[in-house]
């Protein structure tokens, strides 16, 4: 996207595909984590926001949730929850961190691996089809108005998926507001919104709050 242009909001269709990979316990999980396509790691970490409801446990990825609910291993769940799904543009490093975390957990188990009592972890992968929403913005006010009404998948595409497209791991919103509108301070504020906030709607609300504040400061 050229930053001098109007901002065009793209939403995305998602299609979930079942892979042949399954894990019944932590040992199998580490084996499969090394084998599955990177799209599957993406699906269960960053893209979990697209297909999973807000959960009371607030685990940020599907692996941590499974470790807790299906294996009852809260310690592993907590450690997997701490794996950062958003290092700039590098899903391979997310895979490596997940593998290292489970391996280290297995090495330090005080006893035998507890038997899993729940469903196996079934690895999926997600196919994204970006589609223009028809909403555009040429200034901050138009941007705020469009963001308030756009399909929530646009938040995923421009804030989460964009981090893997941009070499510096920034969102499309941050790029455009910084380079297109020249508002560095607001761009920095948006860049600091935690994508682990829980849901795409909450992510939208945080962005809208920051935009409202910026518009208020400008007297708009």
């Amino acid at each position: 996207m050229s930053t001098a242009e109007r901002f065009s909001f793209l939403g995305c269709l998602q299609l979930l595909e079942v892979t042949p990979h399954e894990a019944r316990d932590a040992r199998e999980l580490v084996t499969e984590l090394e084998r599955v396509p990177l799209e599957s790691i993406f699906c269960h970490t960053a893209a979990a926001l697209l297909h999973r409801p807000v959960l009371p446990e607030a685990y940020p990825n599907d692996f941590a949730l499974w470790a807790d609910t299906a294996t009852g291993d809260r310690r592993l769940a907590e450690r997997l929850a701490a794996v950062d799904a958003f290092p700039s543009g590098a899903m391979q490093s997310v895979r490596e961190e997940l593998v290292t975390t489970v391996q280290d957990h297995l090495r330090h188990l005080p006893g035998p691996l507890p038997p899993a009592h729940g469903e196996p972890f079934r690895f999926l992968q997600v196919h994204l089809v970006p589609v223009p929403t028809g909403l555009e913005a040429g200034n901050l006010k138009e941007f705020r108005d469009a963001l308030a009404e756009v399909d929530v998948s646009a938040l995923f595409y421009h804030v989460i998926e964009a981090r893997y497209r941009h070499p510096d791991g920034r969102s499309d919103f941050v790029e455009w507001i910084d380079h297109g509108l020249g508002q560095r301070e607001l761009a920095d504020r948006l860049a600091h919104i935690d994508p682990y906030i829980g849901s795409l709607e909450r992510l939208r609300d945080r962005h809208l709050s920051a935009l409202a504040r910026a518009l208020e400061e400008r007297g708009d």
Partner: peptide
């Protein structure tokens, strides 16, 4: 339906 989703479906239909 969730906000924005109907307009989005119309856009997908166009495509």
């Amino acid at each position: 339906a969730p906000r924005g989703s109907m307009d989005f479906l119309l856009r997908i239909g166009e495509r």
